[in-house]
C-alpha cells in the first residue's frame, strides 16, 4: 500500500492504495463517492468520466497513484454551492436527458468538459464529443438537446417536446 493524496471536489483527500488501484476504485470505495460509475472494462462506455486537472478522463483507466497531487472533480462536485443543480445539470432535467441515470454522471462530466472548451457547440460537435459515452436509454436525442440548451442555444426547433 502506498499513500496517495489529491484534491477531490475541492477537498484535500488521501488514502492508502495498491499499484493496481484505479481512480474509479479509489473514488468509489476509498472516498465513498459512488456517483462515478463503472460500466465496462475496456475503456469504452464513459460512465466513469471525471475531470483530472480540468480534462475529461476515464477514471477506470488511470491508476490512482499516477494522479498524486492532481485536482479531481466528480459528479458530486458539479452542483452549485448551495446544492441546487448547475445550469448543465438543470438542462439535463429540463430536457429529459437521462432515464436510468447510470451513464448520466459520465455524460454530465463529458458535456461540462465540452462546454468549457467550446461554449456554443453545434449538434454535430456535441455528438462527436460524446463518442466515448454510451447511453442505452435515451437514444441520445435529449442528451444532445440538453447540452445545446445548457450552452444557451435555442432548442425549440429540435423536434417538439
Amino acid at each position: 500500500m502506498t499513500k496517495v493524496s489529491m484534491t477531490v471536489n475541492g477537498r484535500a483527500v488521501s488514502g492508502d492504495v495498491e499499484g493496481r488501484t484505479l481512480l474509479s476504485t479509489f473514488l468509489r470505495e476509498g472516498l465513498a463517492l459512488t456517483g462515478t460509475h463503472v460500466g465496462c472494462d475496456t475503456s469504452q462506455c464513459g460512465a466513469c468520466v471525471v475531470h483530472v486537472n480540468g480534462a475529461p478522463v476515464k477514471s477506470c483507466t488511470v491508476f490512482a497513484l499516477d494522479l498524486e497531487g492532481a485536482t479531481i472533480r466528480t459528479i458530486e462536485g458539479m452542483a452549485n454551492a448551495d446544492g441546487s443543480l448547475s445550469p448543465l445539470q438543470q438542462a439535463f432535467q429540463d430536457h429529459h436527458g437521462l432515464q436510468c441515470g447510470f451513464c448520466t454522471p459520465g455524460m454530465v462530466m463529458s458535456s461540462a468538459a465540452l462546454l468549457a472548451e467550446n461554449p456554443r457547440p453545434t449538434p454535430q460537435e456535441v455528438r462527436a464529443y460524446l463518442d466515448g459515452n454510451i447511453c442505452r436509454c435515451t437514444g441520445y436525442h435529449n442528451i444532445v438537446k440538453a447540452v445545446l440548451a445548457a450552452s444557451g442555444q435555442d432548442v425549440s426547433a429540435v423536434a417538439a417536446e
Binding site: E76, Q89, P105
Partner: peptide, 23 residues
Amino acid sequence: ASSKRREDVRFLTGQGHYTDDLQ
C-alpha cells in the same frame, strides 16, 4: 403534463443508489 422527473435530481448529483454502490 410534462412534469420534470423528480428522480433526476439524485442521478444528476451522483446520489443514486445502485446495487454496487451499497457497502
